[in-house]
């Protein structure tokens, strides 16, 4: 089991935003989380990635309990998130954005830049090669030297994905990857996600665009008012009357 969500709970005042949510993401799986606005999906992501401290429950990644590990420790353990509104190092070029995310050993200390020049240079070469590979994979070559702040929303999502890849993540959590992205780029993103999944990277995806998500994932979990109300294959879940009521009914109203 790659990622196990074990009874995560978060309340603000008396309001349970996430309440006792538990499910698992098998190694190398593509899993989606859907739910109406305010269902607690983004909060769940923040709890999983350590942005918020859970009131109760735990997360285990690859069999290791994460407890109170910081967002950075979680990222370094191989589980990285993206953001609903894409975040990027806006003044760094796309290439630098990706390079910055590469886990470093040498070259992380100032002193290394002067006294371990050879080691740093060799490692930079290695990272640069991986960055070029990632840029080519994400078809970002044309904008590689553009400051990331100037990219379109869809391109920024690709950069986010690229940054997650550069960290060497084995599990990537995507927060609404298709929101505000044009249909052509949605297709493009889906293809990339599927290819990465075939290489063994697991994905947990929050998404509103159900048709696009259904084509992608093998398992869907549905949240409503902080609770997990249904889990199964997309077809099973969408046939579930409770889901139709909470989510699709709500959307139609």
């Amino acid at each position: 089991m790659s990622l196990a969500i074990q009874g995560l709970t978060k309340a603000y005042g008396g309001l349970h935003v996430v309440s006792d949510v538990r499910f698992e993401v098998p190694k190398g799986a593509l899993v989606g989380v859907i739910g109406p606005n305010g269902a607690g999906k983004s909060t769940l992501f923040s709890l999983i990635t350590g942005f918020l401290a859970a009131d109760a429950g735990d997360v285990a990644f690859e069999g290791r309990s994460l407890g109170r590990a910081s967002p950075m420790e979680r990222a370094r353990s191989g589980m990285v998130r993206t953001f609903q509104v894409p975040r990027e190092f806006s003044h760094l070029t796309v290439r630098e954005n990706l390079m910055a995310a590469a886990p470093g050993q040498a070259g992380e200390r100032l002193i290394d830049a002067f006294f371990r020049f050879g080691t740093v240079k060799a490692q930079e070469k290695e990272i640069a090669a991986k960055v070029e590979e990632t840029i080519a994979f994400l078809r970002l070559a044309k904008v590689a030297d553009v400051p990331a702040g100037r990219l379109s929303g869809g391109q920024k999502k690709l950069v986010e994905l690229g940054r997650a890849l550069m960290t060497g993540a084995r599990m990537i959590l995507l927060d609404e990857p298709f929101a505000g992205v044009n249909p052509v780029l949605i297709e493009e993103l889906s293809v990339r996600i599927r290819e990465l999944n075939e290489r063994g990277i697991g994905f947990l995806i929050i998404e509103h665009d159900l048709p696009a998500l259904n084509k992608l994932v093998s398992t869907l979990h549905v949240m409503d008012r902080g609770e997990l109300i249904a889990s199964g294959t997309p077809a099973e879940v969408l046939a579930n009357p409770r889901v139709r009521d909470a989510y699709l009914g709500g959307a139609a109203a």
Partner: peptide
């Protein structure tokens, strides 16, 4: 540029 993003990208502050 973005301290939070740096942290979740695994950059040790």
């Amino acid at each position: 540029d973005d301290p939070m993003l740096a942290r979740v990208s695994g950059i040790a502050p």
